[in-house]
Design a protein around this nucleic acid. Structure first.
Lengths: 140, 140
DNA sequence: AAACATTTTAGAGATAACTCTAAGTCGAAA
DNA sequence: TTTCGACTTAGAGTTATCTCTAAAATGTTT
């Protein structure tokens, strides 16, 4: 019930290079090797890779993720540190999402503006449009 | 009615190094120079810097932003391309935000788990808790 | 005018996160 | 048993985005 590095690559979308790189960086200390030196991934390992993806895409650098994994390996004495880390990550992520929300509103305005501009063939004239001027004022 | 690079650095939070780098990369073609060669930023330039920040934080690489600025400089013949770019960026951003939403749910679960774990002093036992097991099942 | 802060350029260096290469080993299929 | 694709390691190379340095010019303050 184990997977080769190639199989894990297909499952996760990470290249075999990246998986080895993650291991070298200390992110996969739990992955075992077969007698002849081949990596053998388990479903538990896939779970860890999924958590790594979650934290990475949430904006945590690989070093931060490694720290978390190191704490996990240390056992229950680091429970508080791990809790703090997740709380901080939640703060970061919520702040990030609010920022993205604002950026999205701005991009939506740009889409309206350019739809009008394309329709009338002029950026200048589209910008002078009453409704777009109203939205723009609302936005800033 | 103009700002020095240092003033713009304070206003935007970007270092003077970064501002010069952006210019070198073609992101600030509208910034003028004084007779003696000093950069003079205007409020219009600050507006562009704000748009650059918006696109960058929305996940667009500097090259993509440069492309947009180049199109802008080309005039109304590129209106369609710019509209497409913003539409695509909207798609990307909405997909990104949905992903972050999922990651946030997972992190919230982890916070609950670790709060319980800290309380009882054991990760294993916290994981076995009925409510946490329920939430975990909901999550995957 | 002297002193000192700010800006200029070209180019080198740093950092994170991959990405690839080479030379060899392993394992499944014909 | 040969063949061939997948795997191994160590280490070099790449990309994006800064970040810094040095030496000279400019701007500001006293």
């Amino acid at each position: 019930m184990g997977y080769s590095i190639g199989q894990v690559s297909k499952k996760t979308g990470l290249t075999t290079h990246t998986l080895r790189y993650y291991e070298k960086e200390g992110l996969l200390p739990f992955v075992k090797k077969s007698g002849s030196g081949l990596r053998v991934f388990t479903d538990v390992d896939l779970g860890w890779l999924s958590m790594i993806e979650c934290l990475k895409e949430s904006g945590m650098p690989l070093k931060g993720i490694k720290q978390y994994i190191d704490w996990y390996q240390e056992g229950d004495s680091t429970l508080g540190k791990r809790l703090d880390m997740f709380k901080k990550q939640k703060e970061n992520l919520e702040a990030e999402m609010q920022k993205l929300q604002k950026h999205l509103a701005r991009i939506n305005y740009k889409i309206k503006l350019y739809e009008k501009a394309v329709k009338i063939g002029s950026f200048e004239k589209a910008q002078a449009d009453a409704e777009l001027t109203r939205i723009r004022k609302e936005l800033f």
